[in-house]
Nucleic acid binder design. Structure first.
Lengths: 224, 224, 224, 224
DNA sequence: TATGAATGAGGTTTCATTCAT
DNA sequence: CATGAATGAAACCTCATTCAT
């Protein structure tokens, strides 16, 4: 990368590097900065990441970030809203398409796992900094969207119980929390380059929990 | 309480109050400070809590904390090691006492849930600040203890499979992670004064996951 | 106006708009920028106004200002020197035309009030930022011109005393300061659209001070 | 002063200096810092003075100021409210004591002039930064107090007209503005060590304006 | 032991200015 | 000429820690 060539204090080198990079458009640059920041947020969290670190990782001075973003929070905002917009849309499309609660739930779980890797930063921030951010007016929407997501999942669970395909002794709100938390928290240790692919991860997880949810959920139907 | 006597700005009154309080031994004072800090850490996290906040909450000036602790990290250290020492001892005692894997796993889960409330701060720190702290030499033991705990849980799962009482298609390491994460992460929203007691919470959770682990795990044995 | 055509974020549209506007000559453009800046300086002061604000108000990017001006100070320079050149010329013409000190003084006061509105920015800057600017070599002329102005006013006052038409116990330098300050400072609250026109304002002021300056200054001549 | 002994980077020297200074109590130190800041504010204005400058002038690091004050604004707040509290009390006592409008007005003017030197910073801030500060919630009281002061002065002027001792063609609100502005603005150039004492200044000013206010205000009574 | 003033590094943000395109 | 990304210094402020009293 250009950044690695750069020597601190050498503005000549710096300028050359800039020239080499600057083929990209404004929105591309902005997007690149968001991605750099996201990586750092995913690694260390939002508050623990400094704008100077973001700048260094992006090969610019921290002040330059403010040409593209109003504040550090604005970067987080972009990361979070991109994630939440997408995931809500996806969840909605899943429950629209799959009327069977068991299938719908499996697809929701798979979608949630699939979002881990591309949205590592957003999920990390939501887990660690949620209570801090939710107090800020700028992030008031977080609570709203979370409620929306919860309603979608809980409705699937409720429907499953009503139809007689899910265990009726489940506390559906609680079950949703357990499901979501266990998936999301995996963002901390899940590395797609590791032992397991995200699909394998989702399958293992579904094995673990679906037998506790569905009345008759073994892959091989029971014969008794 | 002494605190009510205190008039803002009157350091004389402050000193008297201190004197009245200081009937307690040094280790009692230390313990009280740890508890105050723990509450704040549980609420806001380790890095987000300032030593000044701890001092204020404890009724002393921030500088005074350094007579009892080397650093802010030392307080976290005390909180974490107390928790980890206790939970490891408890887990060991459980697996010693219960040779049946199903029972042992249920007890481990119940113990984990039971630790949420008394060790809210430790668990919060482990979740949010673990990666930051684990890099510090002082907290090198974190990884060791975590490995120890994992071995205990995984051994129970492995034994269950070997004995034929647990599903043999479970990835035991992964299953441990899912189990632990879903329990721990509940520290964020579980309030014992709320809708559910910790026992009810554990029961709901066991219902959800044990059917996915045990081959025949309904509380009421199936009669067909 | 071109501004209404512009869509935020569309640089293409922006460029077209620029083209449409650029029928004006370079000096016209420069003059327009000065006026935009002046309005902002008058409202918020010189230092508190950023070049970005100027650019936005003028419909260009801040960097573009530097094609017309060396620096932000250069804009202030233009505003100040335009004002000072004009006012000095006017004062000189007044004292040339009116040999009677009373009439001359009245005209000076009226001219000073009349300058408030068209030169709000210059007067605001001179009041709030004078000491900061006067240290810069570029603004060394400020002190010179101010001395020149003072000499003009004081000479009128001295002449009035020498001729026996002004109170002889006046400290003329001090009186000048009082007169000038009270007029200039009105720039902060005087709004020509308000209760009073600039002429009415000047008249009220003359009523207040001329009786303290002239020996016999009532509008209706005294008969004793 | 201790500060002059200090060499940058020499913490030994620094510590000695601190020791020599530290005979003072907390509130004394606070007061000393306010005075240091006030001097700088008076010289350069509130915004143009940096906390580093205040720190340097006080012989501490800028961060140390925040041990005593919440913010730079808090320092200005202290300066302003001290001034305003005092001047309002003084004005009230004057109008209470002097029922004759002429005498009362003279005393108000004298009090205003007398406040110039001890409250140079407050008056400078009020003149240059008023519109900026008044928008901040913390300084909402500024407008209130200013209104109170205006009412006091205007009432004296109104009473004088009603009693027939002041010219009835005065716009009293406007006259108040002229009076106050001309006095306050003198803070910029008045140096008590200069040619004139504050009393002489007030006298000259009274000579200038009182003849325009009172119907019969010559020192030597007219005989017609 | 407690105080509380001070440190000093580092946090986010602002802004006049430069310059390749 | 205009753009707009970048600079880099400097702004205000925070905070764990130290230390003389």
């Amino acid at each position: 990368m250009a950044a690695t060539k750069r020597q601190a204090g050498s503005s000549a080198t710096r300028t050359e590097a800039r020239a080499a990079e600057s083929k990209q458009s404004s929105s591309q640059r902005r997007q690149a900065l968001v991605e750099v920041a996201a990586e750092l947020f995913a690694e260390s969290g939002f508050r623990a990441t400094t704008v100077r670190q973001i700048g260094e990782a992006a090969g610019v001075f921290s002040g330059s970030l403010y040409h593209h973003f109003d504040s550090k929070e604005a970067i987080a905002d972009e990361i979070l809203s991109t994630y939440l917009d997408g995931i809500v849309r996806e969840y909605k499309s899943i429950v629209k398409e799959h009327t069977d609660p068991g299938t719908a739930l499996r697809e929701l779980v798979r979608a949630a796992f699939a979002s881990l890797e591309p949205h590592r930063a957003a999920i990390t921030i939501l887990q660690n900094e949620r209570s801090y951010l939710a107090e800020l007016p700028r992030f008031a929407y977080l609570t709203k969207v979370e409620n929306e997501v919860r309603r979608i999942w809980v409705k699937v669970l409720d429907t499953g119980i009503a139809q007689g395909s899910f265990h009726k002794d489940l506390d559906t709100k609680l079950t949703y929390q357990f499901l979501r938390d266990a998936i999301w928290v995996a963002v901390r240790w899940f590395a797609p380059s590791g032992r397991l692919s995200v699909d394998q991860l989702a399958d293992q997880y579904l094995k673990l929990v679906m037998r506790g949810i569905e009345l008759d959920s073994d892959e091989a139907p029971r014969l008794w």
